[in-house]
Simulated assay, not measured.
Amino acid sequence: MASADQASSNLVLDPVDSSDSNELNPNPYCLKSGDNPGSILVTELLIGRINYPSWSRVMVIALTAKNKIEFINGVIGKPEANSPLYKAWTLANTMVLSWIYNSVNKNIKSSVMYNETTRQNNLLVSDYFTNFKTLTDELMNCDPLPECSCGAMRILTEKFEKDCVMKFLMGLNENYAAIRTQVLMAEPMPDLNKVYSMVLHEEMQKNISSSSSSEIEAAALYSNVSAKPNSGNRYGNRKERPICSHCGI
């Protein structure tokens, strides 16, 4: 994925200036005078799985027309806080989030509003799982699976559980890439609680390994210091007397 600095190395940094954008190389960070966080870009509001495909298509078209599609397709990522692009990114990204939020039915807005908490970031695995499970349960309450007495209900439930596992894995930090791959290759795929236990165990192993490495490094440092002559000993730094090669004295 391209970084924000790489993707925008040739772009100006003023985010609210319609004159800084040209027709051949429009600046995605630029906010036009008509851009408003209260605007609704699409007439069809997202109400859940039932209309997501059609809603997603018109939303992509609308954001492309606004020259903001790169904020959601991964081309423009979040820059470092000390980057000259950080302020421009924050303004433009917030505008995009507002447009998406305004295009979602009120019953599921809370899940969209707190979407960032479904990523681990600096959280412990247990805290990340708690946040993830809370939002998943809230989404299920707002948009429950249809009631059905036939076998299709079991298929829908299994698909929902599999989607939850996938989203949980994708929200983990990159240092859990190995356990993520292990779960994705498992057949059948374990359920969410089992995956949580596996990731929690991996976190414990990482902590133990890190602690052991620190102890070994400390012991090695102590050993090196202890092996050095004591500078307080008057004989510690005494040099051997030179011996004459002729008489041996």
Rank of each mutant, 00 (worst) to 15 (best):
Q205Y: 04
G48V: 04
N102G: 09
W89F: 14
N193K: 13
I69T: 00
G74W: 07
V60R: 15
V165D: 09
L169N: 01
E116H: 06
G236E: 11
N173P: 03
P188Y: 00
F132R: 07
P15M: 09
A81W: 11
Y29L: 15
L123W: 08
N193F: 06
L97G: 07
M95Y: 04
V58S: 03
G236Q: 11
N102I: 02
D14C: 08
H201M: 06
N121M: 09
F168H: 05
I179V: 15
E147G: 10
S211N: 04
D127Q: 10
S149R: 09
M185H: 10
D143G: 10
D191Q: 11
V165L: 05
S3M: 07
N22T: 13
V199H: 05
I243C: 06
N230Q: 11
E202W: 00
G34W: 15
L46Y: 03
F132K: 10
L13W: 00
L221P: 00
E202Q: 12
D127F: 09
I40Q: 14
I243A: 01
S8V: 05
G151T: 11
S149A: 14
P188F: 02
V165F: 01
D5P: 06
S56K: 15
N141Y: 15
A220T: 12
L192I: 04
V96L: 04
V12T: 10
K239W: 08
I243M: 09
S98D: 02
G38Y: 09
R154P: 00
S197N: 11
M204F: 02
N122Q: 06
V12G: 10
R238L: 15
N93V: 07
D143F: 13
T117D: 13
C148W: 11
S111Q: 14
S214E: 10
F168N: 08
F160T: 01
S209W: 01
S8M: 14
M140F: 13
N36G: 09
D20R: 14
Y86I: 01
T181Q: 09
A186C: 07
I50L: 01
L200G: 00
A88F: 04
K133R: 15
A227Q: 14
M170Q: 11
L91E: 12
C247I: 05
R154G: 06
F71R: 03
C30P: 02
V42H: 02
P28R: 14
S126Y: 06
Y101M: 12
D191F: 00
Y196S: 04
V75A: 00
A88R: 04
L11Y: 01
D163E: 15
S245V: 01
N230T: 10
N122S: 15
K228D: 05
S197P: 00
L63K: 00
S209C: 06
A62N: 07
D17F: 04
E23C: 11
I216C: 03
E158N: 10
E44I: 09
C164D: 10
G171D: 03
P190V: 05
T118M: 14
N107G: 13
